[in-house]
Design a protein around this nucleic acid. Structure first.
Lengths: 237, 237
DNA sequence: GGACCCCACTTCCTATAGGATTTCCGGAGT
DNA sequence: ACTCCGGAAATCCTATAGGAAGTGGGGTCC
């Protein structure tokens, strides 16, 4: 019998360089400190991350899928331009369809994940409280804090998709995830938005606890439309 | 002013090696003559296609997304195993959601693409006729013929998504495209299937011509469920 | 006879190098 | 002042080479 913990620790490292490079670049993009339209040179990135261009190249192919970067053959990659009005509308339509279907499928089989949903909801609340508090203190909200808030928000939705139990729906939701993330960053403006979003989640959760599928989907529709409304309100002041 | 046609002809070639490699491997996989689970060696593929491993590697990352190949870090790529019963069911659920939403969105704005839909429908019919004729002659239907049939079938659906005008829906539909293709190959069994599928398309088209959104979505639902029924009927004889 | 180990082969993964193309910038011409 | 052009630097793209890990087979020991 050999030691098991060292082996498992090694397995965590055993993911190939490509995946780590992918996560690093993704994180960099989601931080939001890169100018849309600016070039993403493969060689430069490789030097910055201290790896060879090949894994960077593979990661970029993967990133292309998320819509965060665009590629022009023989001309390289660029940071994707910000979402236009029309694109935004389409994104909401697509997300509405996905979230409604996921809620519909999840409602009758939500029982096993109710605990997880409640936990995610409480975490969401805690993060929201901190964000609101920081907002009232001053205009500068720490990046870490908003990241946590987004993560908690996303976790709630992911739990619903997990309950729905359809791998293709989950995949589509993940695909939209990066775009949605960019969107959320633009939406987080006032304290009321945070409060409203949390309240809307609460109504979805309550309906799922009652096992009321119709109410749950209706609450989810209200939530997504609420986000849409707040989004366009911020878009054009 | 410089000559324009030569330049445009050159642009067609200007897609980088990666895209061409991707299409070649994709075509190879969709032909269906590769054993599920068999290994896809990068070096071997590179030698077969007479290119270096790098573009092959990029193409494989892209293929991984389609679900046709699976990757295990440091162990290479394999042809994805055939779809299980559960996976099949989830695929149908996801596709049903997409096609219904696309039909719903397309119905009020189908007018400009009706001609294209009718053309696709006629082509579908022509291909169906040829397939039926070949089936009645003998058990062996030429690959080329079935390919054309699938292409015509897919074109009809794509036209609806184009009319829907949501780029994310189109993207999701394309993502499922490869899986759906594998599915269709398994479904094409009897002459009645071909006839039924075409008739179901016809009812969708008729509803769209009348501008009746509810009837169109209902007809589309009937179509997808019809495919599902025929699929599981063939699955377990 | 079965299990274990060692070794050669294959394959993946990464790094480096070179050719082709694009981009950028300064200068000449109109 | 604007346009056009030419060359240099940066960049993409592809090819080749080598180290690291996995895979399979044969031999040996129990």
């Amino acid at each position: 019998m050999t030691a098991q913990l060292p082996l498992r620790a090694r397995d965590l490292e055993r993911r190939g360089l490509r995946d780590r490079v992918y996560e690093l670049i993704l994180e960099m993009l989601l931080e939001g400190d890169v100018e849309p339209g600016s070039r993403l040179s493969i060689d430069t990135l490789a030097k910055q991350l201290d790896v060879s261009p090949t894994p960077v190249r593979e990661a970029m192919v993967q990133l292309e899928r998320t819509g965060l970067v665009t590629r022009e053959a023989l001309k390289g990659y660029r940071v994707a331009p910000p979402l236009g009005r029309e694109q935004l509308s389409e994104l909401f339509d697509a997300r509405l369809m996905l979230e409604l279907e996921a809620t519909r499928l999840a409602a009758p089989r939500a029982q096993p994940v109710l605990d997880e949903l409640r936990r995610a909801h409480r975490l969401h609340q805690a993060c929201a409280d901190r964000v609101v508090e920081a907002m009232e203190q001053g205009p500068d909200v720490p990046v870490r804090m908003t990241q946590d808030y987004f993560e908690a928000d996303g976790a709630f939705h992911r739990a619903i998709f997990a309950a729905a139990g359809n791998r293709y729906l989950i995949g589509m939701h993940e695909d939209l995830g990066a775009m949605t993330h960019r969107l959320r960053q633009a939406v987080l403006r006032g304290t009321s938005d945070v409060r409203e979003a949390h309240a809307e989640h609460g109504r979805v959760l309550a309906a799922l606890e009652r096992g009321d599928a119709d109410a749950a989907t209706a609450a989810m529709r209200a939530h997504i439309e609420g986000v849409r409304t707040r989004s366009v309100r911020d878009e054009t002041p």
